[in-house]
Every structure is written in C-alpha cells, then in structure tokens.
Design a protein around this nucleic acid. Structure first.
Lengths: 340, 340
DNA sequence: CTGAAAGCGCTAACAT
DNA sequence: ATGTTAGCGCTTTCAG
C-alpha cells in the first residue's frame, strides 16, 4: 500500500505538499505539482480514507438505518439517498437492522463510534427512538426520514411526508369514480405507522358522507402476503365492496392477487389503490393506481438536513415538509359497477 | 465524544489498560477491570472504529459492489452477505454502481483506499474486471460472487453457481410435463451473463430430441418489462409454444403478465419457469415455478473466502462451487395441453 | 499486572 | 512556495 510519505519522498517533497496538491489547498509551484502528480500516478497512490477520517475528525460515510431491506421500497429510497450523499463526496453505509433490536444497537454503537458521520433513519417506528436520541446527545447528527405522524412532533430533526393527505387523495379518487362501498387494508397495526394514511381515507369518506365501519377495515403487516390474505377475508365478509383502499403498495399488490384468485376483475369488479408508487406498481398487471410520495425529494432533503447538522448549523428547521403526494392513475381503478 | 484516554484517567489507569480490558487481551486485575468497566459505562464510551481501523491497519467494513440495487435479487443477496459479515464483526458497505463505470471507479478507489477491508463483487459481468484485478494487485482482497461461466476460469477468486445445470433442470421439468414446443426468454445479451443458463436449456432439449430454433428465443435485459415484451413478441410469432423457459425470475414475472394480457391461462395454456427463486416468485399469482439457486450459501462462501484472503491464506481455492440448484415447482407450470 | 511510548496515514496550523 | 510539527484515538510492543 502506497502512503503519502512514499509519494512525497519519490517526488522529493514532503507529505504536506503532496497533501496540498492532491486536495487543491495551499500554494504549490506548478513544476512541483507536476512532479507530485507523476509520483502519484507511478505509485498508484490512493489516499487512505481511514487515516483521513481520523485526522479530519469525520468519517467519509453516512449511515442509513433501515428495518428491512426486503421491502422493495427501502432499496429504492436507499438509492436516492446514495445519489445525494455521493454527490457530496460521502459514501453510504446501508445498515439493515432486520427489525432486530440487537442488530440495531450494534449498528448504532458502531456508527456512533464514528464509523459514520451522520445517521439517517428510515421507518422510525421500528426503531428504538431512545437510542437515537442518546446518539444525538453524544453529538452524532441524526435525522428521521419519512416522518408520518403529523400529530406528534418528532423527537429528532425529521423530514415529513404528508401521508394523511395521500390517504385523502386515494379516497377522493375512489369516490370520484362513484364508489360508495370502500374497504380498507392497512399495512400496519391499528396504532402503527400507517394510521394517518387510514385517517386521511376515513376523513375523506366522512366528508363525502360515505359510511365506513369497523367491519370494512383490516389491519395487518406491510407485505404482499398479508395484503392478499387481508383482501380475502375482507371480501369474503363484505362482498358488496367495490373498491379497496390499501395503505401501501406492497400489500396492494397482494390485494390485486387476491382479486384474481377470487375471480374478480380489476377494475371492473373491484378497484384497488395503493400509496407510495414503488417501481413494482407499474410493472405489475393490472398496473396499480397509487398515490405517489416524493421519495427522491425526501432523500435529498434528509441528506441536506444531515449535512446542515454536520456543519453545526444551529438554526436548523427541525421538521421539513416535502411536496404533497400525487395521484397516479393506472389500471387498477375504474368507474364503479362496470363489472356487475 | 468520549475517548479511551478519558476513560483511563477516570479509572485511574492508562489507555493501554482500558484497551486491554475492552478487548479481553493481556492480563488485567479483576479489581482494575471493574473500575475500568464502571468508567466505560458512566462515560458511555464507544470505541472509535476509525481510529481502531487505522491502528490495526484494517477497516471494520467489507464492501459489496452491486450493479443495481433495483433488481430485487441484489438486496436479497446483500442481506445474506450482511448476516455473514456481521457474524464476523464486520460491517457491510453496499456500493451501488448503478451500472455507471465512473461511479464504480469511485467506489473501487475508495474501498481500495481502505474504506473497506475486502471487496465482494456481484455480477462481475457489468464490472470492469481490470479495475478489480488492479485492486487485487494492490493487496485488496477481492472475490467474485455468483460466477456463472464454467468455460472461463475467473480472473479472481470466485464462488461459482451452476447455472448451466439450472438451465438443464428447468428444461427437464418442462419436458417431463410433456412440453415439446418450448420457447426461451433470456435476460441478457446473446453473449451475456445468462448464456450458460440458456445453453443448459438448449442442451437438455437436444438430448431429448426436441427441436428449438432461432425463432424460439429472444434475448434481452433482466427486467420485468423486458420479460413481458419479449413474451409478447415471441408468442405472437410462434403461437404454438406451450411453455416458456426464462433465464431469470424477474423477466419470468413479466412473462406471466404477458400471458395474462394475451388471455392465456397459466399453466393451462402456457407453462412458465424461471431461475433463481427470488422472494417475489412465490408472492406472485400464479406462483412462479423456478429453479432455486443457493443464494445464502453463495453469500456465506464468498464471505468465507474473503476472510481467508484477509488472513493471507495462500493456498486459497480460487474457485469454490456451491450446492447444485433445486427445482421448486409452484403454480406456473403444468402438464402440456390441458388448456387446449 | 500495568504504564510508557511509538506509530497507523493523514491533515492543519505554523514556520521558514 | 514548501517544510516542520503536532496531533486524530487507538493498538501494541516493551519495560517496569
């Protein structure tokens, strides 16, 4: 492994000078610079980022904590974060806790122990907030991504996405298509992360004077399989439903499959709408109508915030909003009653 | 940020001693150890991994280079790698090159510049092998994951998966079901990464005396959308096909969708088989029959190899084989002719 | 059993 | 314009 010192001696200068030419700092004679550059090339020198990090007091990485990389949304978000982070010269350390608190603690200790300069946390619901707050107190910049609880002020700097509004928009779309008997599949516990999406849906229904009772909703988990089974039991119990609101795209995909299995044509017999707009949503058939959420923007804003924190910006806005969600109409929703 | 020295002075000892008790090295008096541990707790000390890495001459991370995190297989593999790596006390740095050579070079320089202790490379097809070889020559351990070209000895230590065999198995399954007119959708260029999967398929057909010509195959890319469009053109051109072999699960999912769009029942009218067994394969309806490949094992073996290289094991086997693929019969394949 | 000291490779004042 | 000198926080001989 080639070191700065080796390059320096080869170029007949000192390490400081090499460092200067490499980083464009300070004044270096044109001729010296050439000699140094030549030595660098010849020795195939690559700066040791660990040493640099130690000397500068800041690692070259930002960590992204996700609860499960298996959910396709996370890779998509991670990708966006990575782009933003790379643009600023950092590397992304993707930390998959797998919903395991021990794993999560290991990661937080490690990144807090300065493997990473800052920590982005996805899906704060599954994460032990206390640990994060402690991390923050130890001076590590932390930001929560995709905060979706408008009623609770986040315990840490966060970027918010208006999922409540997304719920409303989904409902309004269904209502506009003439649906009056609309069921809901929620991809989280009753008190879980998706609750505000459901509230938005419910409020929009109420506003339109449409009935929606306890029997019209099922709470579960954020997976395709759960979406499918939820749809099965829901539709078996309440067969007159003409549309289903699903709080996330992944379970919505499951709902689509359930419909197919039950012989229901989508959207003729049943309309289905999701939230998020993951890639699979348009890759599936029928393509899923959904309310797209500003993934890219969230990532960019989150990275921006963490950089601000790193730079010690004191008047940091603790909660940044992103652009409102957008309805994306595809093939899984249609006018009510066409199939009957 | 608490440092070793601070803990030391608080415990009335020296940094060396603290280091010793924390790492279980050397001999430390029971009573001293207690005092140190108390100080550690009280000060909430976390070792600085950057400093440690520098002192030890080895970073705490292993890098995994993937060409595209968007393809759902990569996260799955990354997860397996991560588990294996964490078990050994390392952290995983997922590097998504996005098929961009510049991005890839940036990553390789960074990890080679000792951001990571070793580099695992997925899908070596999309990667500039020369760069990797150079990295290796500079002393960085590199291993290629999922090598699938039995005819070419890998330029670097690799773990091989027998995709040729997978192709054979897929074909044999279809043949056993009575199919004689079998088309193929290959998720890579004609000379690309999937070629041996296709060769296995072709060889098995030949062995069974089944005709398969140029018109029965389409080469493309490894995506759902490409799978779908390939199936459309293939089935339009050769309508008597009763089964489709697809070289990867992702395009196979697209084929399933194309079938639905064309009004073909699967498997009654058309049988479809993929390769890999990604999670989506069983989450989709009809569930995809596929030839499962040893993902987990590949990850474990790859990590094992890189550790060997890190330890400077000279008699490293340069090419390790994994267990043979396994046929997983689900709902997308069936006896020929049931639908006609 | 514990302490002192050197050094990992780099950066950042401060000198010259 | 270049060199000198300290560290960054930790590990690791080597003494005591």
């Amino acid at each position: 492994m080639t070191t700065l010192a080796q390059v320096a001696s080869k170029a007949g200068v000192t390490a400081a000078t090499v460092s200067n030419v490499l980083r464009g700092r300070g004044k270096v004679g044109a001729e010296t610079r050439e000699r140094v550059l030549a030595a660098v090339r010849e020795l195939k020198y690559r700066p040791n980022l660990t040493a640099r990090a130690l000397a500068e007091g800041r690692p070259a990485t930002i960590a992204l904590i996700v609860s499960s990389i298996a959910n396709p949304f996370y890779p998509e978000f991670a990708l966006a974060v990575e782009r933003a982070v790379r643009k600023l010269g950092y590397f992304l350390l993707v930390c998959n806790t797998n919903d395991d608190p021990a794993q999560e603690k290991a990661y937080l200790d490690a990144v807090g122990g300065s493997l990473a300069h800052g920590v982005l946390v996805m899906n704060a619901d599954f994460v032990q907030i206390d640990e994060l707050v402690q991390l923050r107190e130890r001076g590590v910049p932390v930001v929560l991504c995709m905060w979706e609880k408008p009623d609770q002020p986040p315990p840490l700097p966060s970027v918010a996405v208006d999922f409540y509004r997304a719920g409303i928009m989904a409902a309004e779309h269904l209502i506009a298509l003439g649906h009056r008997r609309i069921g809901a599949v929620v991809g989280s516990e009753r008190s879980g992360n998706h609750i505000w999406r459901y509230r938005g849906f419910v409020d929009a229904l109420a506003k339109a004077g449409i009935a929606h009772g306890e029997g019209d909703v099922i709470f579960g988990h954020d997976t395709i399989d759960e979406g499918r089974s939820a749809a099965h039991t829901l539709l078996a119990g309440v067969p007159d439903l003409t549309a289903l609101f699903v709080s996330n795209d992944l379970p919505a995909l499951g709902v689509l499959q359930a419909a197919a299995e039950m012989g229901l044509a989508v959207p003729a017999d049943l309309s289905v709408i999701g939230i998020t707009d993951i890639q699979l949503a348009h890759q599936v058939r029928p393509a899923l109508t959904t309310v797209a959420v500003p993934t890219e923007e969230s990532a960019v804003v989150a990275v921006e915030m963490i950089m601000r924190m790193i730079d010690g910006d004191e008047e940091l806005t603790p909660l940044r909003e992103t652009a409102p969600p957008k309805l994306v109409v595809r093939a899984s929703t249609g006018l009510v009653g066409r199939g009957r």
